[in-house]
Structures are given as structure tokens and as C-alpha cells.
């Protein structure tokens, strides 16, 4: 039992963060809070990628005579790309929110839905 929780704590952390983010994206009415949720959601997946890159006893993937094992650098590189994507998504979302605020005068979803009826 302890093995499941402590031995794989990295996965538990990523799942918990992911669900927090997911909840915020679905349940929150405030558009900015949704974006915050989206960021948590995406970051949790990044953490997952980073944690699977770790090799037990491995060092940083830099050529070094004393190193026996290296961590896998590929997931790090993938996540660099995904971070760029995440930043651009956040930028687009925030730009949209600014325009929504100018057009509706509110960033609460329920109020906006009322107005657009």
C-alpha cells in the first residue's frame, strides 16, 4: 500500500494537479480563473514528462567521464516545445479575455451568457 503511494509519488502529484486544473477549467465562472486552471492542467503534464525522464542514479545529460548513467534528455526537449505551446495558448486566451472584457464589460461567464441571449 505504502509502495503505491510513496513509491510512485510523482504520478500522484501530477494526477492531483491535473484534476485541480481540470476542475478549474470546467467549474469556474471567471474566465481568468479558467486560464489559471488551464495552466495548472498543462503544467501537470509537463511534470509527468519530466519525471519519466529520470533514470535512477543518472546524472544530468552532459558528457562527463565519471558518469555511468544519464537521465533521458528527450522528454526535457519535448517539454520545452510543449511549454512554448502552453505560453502561446495562454497568450491567445488572455488576448481574447481582454477583447471579451471590452465587448461585454465583464469576464464572468454566466453574465456574458445572459448578455449574449
Amino acid at each position: 500500500m505504502i509502495e503505491i503511494f510513496l513509491g510512485k509519488y510523482n504520478y500522484w502529484i501530477y494526477i492531483t494537479l491535473m484534476m485541480i486544473g481540470f476542475y478549474a477549467m470546467i467549474a469556474k465562472q471567471n474566465l481568468i480563473k479558467k486560464v489559471i486552471g488551464m495552466n495548472i492542467f498543462q503544467t501537470s503534464v509537463f511534470l509527468f514528462y519530466i519525471s519519466i525522464a529520470k533514470v535512477k542514479g543518472g546524472t544530468a545529460p552532459i558528457v562527463w567521464e565519471e558518469a555511468i548513467l544519464y537521465d533521458n534528455p528527450l522528454p526535457h526537449v519535448l517539454i520545452l516545445t510543449a511549454i512554448v505551446v502552453s505560453v502561446s495558448t495562454t497568450a491567445v486566451a488572455l488576448a481574447l479575455i481582454i477583447r471579451i472584457y471590452k465587448a461585454y464589460g465583464s469576464i464572468e461567464e454566466d453574465k456574458i451568457l445572459e448578455m449574449s441571449k
Binding site: M25, L96, I100, A103, I112, S116
Partner: peptide, 12 residues
């Protein structure tokens, strides 16, 4: 302005 909300929901 509805286009903005449509786009935002699609984005999420």
C-alpha cells in the same frame, strides 16, 4: 462579439 466567446470556449 459572440465570436469572442465562441473562440474562447473552443480554446478551452
Amino acid at each position: 462579439r459572440d465570436a469572442l466567446i465562441a473562440s474562447y470556449n473552443y480554446l478551452i
